[in-house]
């Protein structure tokens, strides 16, 4: 089925309007807010701190624990019931795996770094917004990182390869495939790639190229938000 014009009048390779802010949760060690379109993610980092239960402790390096939560009033309520679920448990794991490649926790043995990601408002791309916010919060907390992580969803809607799908597009009657991707912007390595749905090899390649390109835009915003907390760039 043909998809000629996006529902929200964007170009096929255009992201939704974005906003990023660092240091939004006062009591956290690091925090950030990331908004993309109608999806809002707030991430707070606590730690390194003592880890309980203690059998999870790793004497060689610290561990990362993620907590993804759609707030009870978020979402349209049609498909996903907000709150703890099998789905959110899976997302906790994939967020942890998406962030660990850039994070060095070896100076903090036996400890845990907790990330809490709360979504106050959701319109698809929540795990991507969560990862983008979490990377900002980790950088804000001062932990050693080799890079940031930027994340976006790409996919096909009808016959078109598009970036940053909305809920409306995911539910497109002609079929849609949603692929969340997380990328380390400096060297373009992929730390998250999930795909359930149908896509041709050519379209997948196109979609990943698109993800790499648009993640650079998200990264630019991330850098700007981090620098703004300390009065911006002097250049």
């Amino acid at each position: 089925m043909k998809y000629t014009k996006r529902f929200d009048k964007r170009k096929f390779d255009q992201l939704r309007e974005m906003e990023a802010k660092v240091g939004v949760v006062k009591r956290a060690d690091g925090s950030a807010l990331f908004r993309i379109g109608k999806t809002i993610a707030i991430a707070a980092v606590y730690g390194p701190r003592a880890l309980h239960p203690s059998h999870l402790r790793n004497p060689e390096k610290g561990i990362l624990r993620c907590n993804y939560n759609m707030m009870s009033f978020s979402g349209s309520g049609e498909r996903i019931r907000p709150g703890p679920s099998r789905r959110s448990k899976e997302i906790n794991l994939i967020i942890q795996k998406a962030l660990l490649p850039v994070l060095d926790l070896s100076p903090f043995p036996n400890t845990v770094v907790d990330i809490f990601i709360e979504l106050t408002q959701t319109d698809s791309g929540t795990r991507c917004a969560g990862i983008t916010a979490a990377a900002l919060a980790l950088a804000d907390s001062g932990l050693p990182m080799t890079d940031l992580v930027a994340s976006v969803s790409v996919g096909t809607v009808g016959d078109k390869v598009v970036v940053d799908l909305t809920k409306e597009e995911e539910d497109f009657e002609g079929g849609a495939t949603d692929i969340p991707v997380a990328i380390t912007p400096r060297n373009g390595k992929i730390t998250l790639l999930q795909l359930d749905g149908n896509i041709t090899k050519e379209d997948l390649k196109k979609a990943l190229e698109l993800a790499k390109k648009t993640c650079k835009e998200i990264h630019t915003l991330q850098v700007k938000a981090l620098k703004e907390k300390y009065g911006g760039d002097k250049k």
Binding site: P144, T146, P185, R186, G231, G232, D233, K234, K235
Partner: peptide, 9 residues
């Protein structure tokens, strides 16, 4: 430059 604010990566 010296005293520039830099971000991870």
């Amino acid at each position: 430059k010296d005293k520039d604010i830099v971000v991870p990566g």
